[in-house]
Design a protein around this nucleic acid. Structure first.
Length: 781
DNA sequence: GCGGATCAC
DNA sequence: TATGGTGATCCGC
């Protein structure tokens, strides 16, 4: 839309400029700049919104102050060294400069307003804006003469221009028009990149080559859409975007594809014009005396010392006039969210209801794209416009209203409790789901489940169970007895399938597993399918549920042996060559090294120690990695893995149904899925006691129950159970609290700070952080 | 993994 | 009366 870029200055200037006054040329019928400023300030001053803006401004100023202090400590020697390093990088960039592409940026002028005027000619000679009294999306040029801009609240716009007509948005209509336009754009570049309904990048390099051979009359037309639009033509996206903004309205600008032309264009360009340089970055750089791209280049060594690598690399790209020369599509989506602003809601009950509604909306949206994820985040904005987010990641993917709400509600409850007896005075709430499994995860899951079902002669799903202190001895005893047994025997010994009304694990009950009728049917079905599968596919890949390594073996016996060996853990270390991979037909066989289990002595000790010390144990049935859980079972602790791994994987959920849905293999599992559903709704699953909070959960849905357990773990309720024995320093909740109470500015002031840009234009390849999870640390105390 | 921030549209 | 919603990314824990 009509993004307007603020210039540097205090909040008042920022605000006024945000509302578009930096390029305001008051027309005959408009308002002059001072008048507009005055009206806006009158409407703004004293508001809670304004108060928060001031607060944010102070934080930015603090950041700048910190940066300046850091700058003062830089020695000339450091600077010289940095200069060498930066220039070396600049040289590399220069060598890779690519001027062979022709990129066009298309920006439809006042798009929504233009569509509304097209459909209602009466509006043509009037000032209009699209949006509401709360917020405007865009305005036409007539309205802009009064200072009415996108991102301005309608009620302020009305004060600036009482005759302003505010049209409610018709997104369906805009989408339709946008689609028409995009059809035209596709003629020039079938792979064009749409950034929004009214903005797109085209790479017309190929088109231009083909045009060379066209007849004269055909060549004189160029992108006629019938709509007013800006467009900029340049050798890369960064320049093209700046170009399209150059000759508004309805203009065109080209940067010729030679280095000198690019540098001339860049020379006096304010950095704020560049996509990715926002208000804050502009202000920080201005504090260093940087406003134009030339200045950005001159200060490159300093910037490399004050900013993160990601950031100064980005700066260097900009100051050399470099940008993307190909239009990279965004990959798979990484999150999905809903949020809503409303007039104050302070009653907890209403907040929970609202939360549930948002979860429901989100669940519907997720379903449309078939998405499931593991991290639920709530967002809260209070009446003072202060924003908070709280997240919780569970071990298996969730997607339904109930599942998401089970998590979101606890996050909300924590926040409500934290402020008690004061209510949360909210003006906005949002719910987001993220951590979607990628394709690799899904394949992995699938192999895991197939491998598991194939190898095992039991595959009952069980809910998480907890072993209470009184049962510990029995549990450990049964573990001991099973030490020499095969994997599934052992797991059977460990697991508890209670038919009682709680999941207190009292004894190993092997019989009960085998008497489940539907399970027998399920198992038979699965074996049939897998037999078929084996015949048709010689290089089936399994993932060992113990060591989580791929087993590229066609031989089930071999796979079973591997699993058994894994279970036996350290005792078989060094004997792993017993597993044959010689039947594999694929050339990818053994691509991964170290496919065999092997455990160090210390790992073994860890394992044994924690077995002895664990007062609380989860019992797991089949272990598979990352399998979503409809019928989930857990054993973080009886697994051979180390603390870290247990901590990061508190549960190893297992879900036939979901795996079936995701299945793309030759194995057809659909009918088994229906059996699984029956299985997971066994009547005896109805009264579940959470092993963490010890409260009975009124649900027969195992996934929901397990979500509850995850949430309990994440909340650190366990501290209530073990507060005498456990050091809770790393508990997330505690952590959160201290973070909240010590303002961010204070905190960062004491740390080395290399502020970064936060844009999608940076190309950092961050190494994966250590994702160890605090929540289960308590178990190993 | 979490939470605050920044940015784009 | 009244200052949005969605998605991504980065940084420092």
């Amino acid at each position: 839309m009509d993004s307007t870029k603020e210039k540097n200055g205090n909040y008042k200037d920022d605000l006024l400029l945000r509302m578009g006054l930096n390029d305001n040329k008051a027309g005959m019928e408009g308002l002059d700049k001072d008048k507009i400023n005055k009206i806006i300030m009158e409407a703004t001053k004293g508001s809670r919104f304004y108060g928060n803006e001031l607060k944010k401004e102070k934080q930015v100023n603090q950041r700048i102050e910190n940066m300046m202090q850091q700058k003062a400590q830089i020695t000339s020697q450091q600077l010289r060294k940095a200069q060498l390093q930066v220039d070396r990088y600049a040289m590399e960039l220069e060598q890779s400069r690519d001027l062979n592409n022709t990129i066009v940026h298309i920006d439809m002028d006042a798009f929504y307003a233009a569509v509304e005027m097209r459909d209602n000619p009466e509006l043509k000679d009037k000032p209009i804006a699209v949006g509401s009294m709360s917020m405007l999306s865009t305005s036409n040029y007539y309205a802009r003469r009064f200072g009415v801009r996108a991102a301005m609240p309608g009620f302020i716009a009305k004060r600036l221009c009482p005759q302003l007509i505010i049209v409610p948005p018709n997104f369906d209509k805009y989408r339709a028009v946008s689609t028409e336009v995009k059809e035209i754009l596709a003629d020039y570049d079938p792979n064009f990149l749409a950034m929004s309904l009214d903005e797109a990048y085209l790479n017309i390099t190929k088109h231009l080559q083909e045009r060379q051979n066209w007849p004269e009359d055909k060549r004189k037309y160029f992108i006629k859409t019938g709509n007013p639009l800006e467009n900029g033509i340049a050798p890369n996206t960064m320049l093209a975007k700046v170009c399209s903004d150059k000759n508004k309205p309805n203009g065109q600008y080209q940067v010729l594809p030679n280095r000198q032309a690019v540098m001339d264009f860049i020379k006096d360009l304010p950095i704020r014009k560049v996509s990715g340089i926002g208000k804050v970055t502009e202000k920080m750089l201005k504090a260093l005396g940087i406003i134009t791209c030339t200045e950005l280049y001159q200060q490159r060594a300093l910037l490399s010392l004050l900013f993160s690598e990601t950031s100064w690399h980005h700066f260097l790209h900009i100051s050399l006039g470099l940008g993307s020369t190909h239009l990279a599509r965004d990959g798979e989506r990484k999150s999905m969210s809903v949020e809503r602003t409303f007039s104050e809601i302070s009653k907890a009950e209403e907040q929970y209801n609202l939360c549930q509604e948002l979860c429901s909306e989100l669940a519907q949206d997720l379903q449309k794209e078939g998405l499931k994820g593991r991290t639920v985040t709530i967002k809260l904005k209070n009446v003072n416009f202060e924003v908070k987010t709280r997240a919780s990641t569970v071990s298996s993917v969730v997607s339904t209203t109930e599942e998401i709400f089970a998590i979101a509600k606890e996050l909300l409850r924590t926040e409500i409790d934290a402020d008690f007896p004061h209510p949360l005075r909210l003006r906005l709430m949002g719910v987001r789901l993220s951590s979607f499994p990628n394709e690799e995860d899904k394949r992995h899951q699938q192999r895991s489940i197939i491998g598991f079902l194939q190898a095992g002669n039991q595959s009952q799903s069980a809910p998480r169970c907890i072993l209470e202190n009184t049962d510990k001895d029995q549990f450990l005893k049964s573990l001991e007895m099973s030490h020499k047994k095969s994997f599934f025997d052992k797991k059977r010994s460990e697991r508890k399938w209670s038919h009682q009304d709680t999941f207190k694990c009292e004894a190993v009950d092997k019989q009960s597993l085998q008497t489940s009728h539907s399970f027998q049917v399920l198992k038979k079905k699965m074996n049939e399918n897998l037999e078929t599968s084996e015949n048709s596919n010689n290089s089936q890949i399994f993932t060992c549920p113990i060591c989580f390594r791929e087993q590229r073996s066609i031989s089930l016996e071999a796979f079973n042996k591997h699993v058994d060996a894994c279970l036996d853990g350290p005792s078989i270390s060094g004997t792993s060559n017993m597993f044959s991979h010689s039947h594999a037909s694929s050339t990818e066989v053994n691509k991964k090294e170290n496919v065999y289990p092997s455990f160090s002595q210390s790992e073994k000790q860890d394992y044994e120690t924690h077995q002895r010390n664990s007062e609380i144990n989860f019992i797991e049935l089949p272990e598979t990695e990352d399998n979503p859980a409809k019928a989930e079972s857990v054993d973080a602790l009886s697994d051979k893995h180390s603390k870290e791994e247990c901590a990061s994987l508190p549960s190893k959920p297992f879900n036939i149904e979901k795996c079936c849905q995701n299945s793309s293999s030759t194995v057809s599992l659909e009918d088994i899925a229906s059996l699984s559903r029956q299985e997971s709704s066994q009547p005896y699953l109805q009264a579940l006691v959470c092993p963490v909070c010890n409260l009975e959960q009124k649900t027969s849905d195992l996934t929901l129950f397990n979500v509850h357990v995850d949430v309990c773990l994440n909340k650190g309720i366990i501290q209530e159970l073990r507060k005498d024995k456990v050091n809770l320093a790393n508990q997330p909740r505690e952590n959160t609290k201290s973070t909240d109470n010590s303002g961010r500015v204070q905190k960062t002031a004491t740390k080395p700070k290399r502020p970064g840009l936060m844009t999608k234009y940076s190309a950092s390849k961050k190494t994966k952080p250590n994702n160890s999870r605090h929540t289960l640390d308590v178990f190993f105390k």
